[in-house]
Design a protein around this nucleic acid. Structure first.
Lengths: 167, 167
DNA sequence: AGGCTTGATTGTCTTTGACAACCTTATGGT
DNA sequence: ACCATAAGGTTGTCAAAGACAATCAAGCCT
């Protein structure tokens, strides 16, 4: 018994952890987002531990991007991930080493690479998508179905707003 | 021009980054949460760069907790942070080294420590709170005032739901 | 042709975070 | 009272993430 709370559809829950009222942090969207990220990431790592993919958000997002956009370039992935190119390059290194994607040089621009998913990579991708679906279901099932679109919309808009400030 | 979107009050925005439709990831709450965390964290690091506090969420949350709960114990902080005790211990080390909090042994339990804020620490805490208020205002100002409580409530409930599964 | 920009890699450094082992103090059962 | 066990913290080690600078190669633009 370390966390307790009253959860109601319409009231603002109080947050108490090990006897500490962490009211301070309430009112701070960012704090919840950061804590949620930590939890979601760890949970996802656990769920994917048995798979042949290194943990970390970057790997999975990159894999999905290659799966959905054959020929995508590392720099595009870097932009989506908001990482610099060296970091993205190493993520891709690992995916290539694991045999889930392939690097080819783009004939139209010899500097650039075009990335393609392998069969193994596609299968892995499908498996991870299913895992994420399960995670979503378990983590967010308490949000009433009719509230989900609203929540998602707010997240998206926050994301887009943030990206605008980013560039 | 790397991110573009149509933002409407009521429509679901499309997300396009550098020409990539990242529809795949839509429908995944977790992806937005993770991306948002990344952005919010980096932004906060930038804003607090000039301050005498190491970057990282742990430092700030721990500082706030000590500021609000004089005599709090490291293990309680570890629980809020969802970190293990070694990690929490090192966060506290840094805060003590920087002179913003003090370690005393709890007379009631000689194993345990009671943490207290210093004057310097309290001043720093106030300063950071103000910075966070500003960040919140800039990041989340596009959420209509009447929608904010709902958004916050959903975040809180997600957080609490997650903590329940955590323990 | 020359200079500049873009795509990507390599090398290095710092920071996080996880895990295991250890020491000290409380607690609880007998 | 005593011994085993649990709880609070510290130290040591290791791996991974991420940031930054420097480098190389290819295209673009006058």
């Amino acid at each position: 018994m370390t966390a307790s709370a009253t959860i109601d559809a319409d009231t603002d829950p109080e947050i108490v952890i090990k006897g500490l009222h962490i009211d301070v942090l309430e009112g701070a969207f960012s704090w919840f987002i950061r804590s949620l990220d930590y939890a979601v990431s760890r949970d996802l790592d656990r769920r994917t531990a048995r798979l042949e993919i290194a943990r970390g958000k970057g790997q999975i997002t990159a894999l999905f991007l290659v799966d959905d956009h054959p020929g995508v370039r590392p720099s595009q992935i870097a932009d989506v991930l908001m990482r610099d190119r060296p970091a993205t390059g190493r993520i891709i290194d690992r995916l290539v080493r694991d045999g889930v994607i392939e690097r080819r040089t783009d004939p139209a621009d010899l500097r650039a690479q075009a990335l393609f998913i392998t069969e193994k990579g596609h299968a892995l991708s499908q498996e991870i998508r299913e895992i994420i679906r399960q995670q979503e279901a378990e983590f967010f099932d308490f949000i009433a179905p009719e509230d989900r679109p609203a929540f998602m919309r707010m997240l998206k808009r926050t994301y887009l707003n943030m990206r605008k400030k980013w560039d």
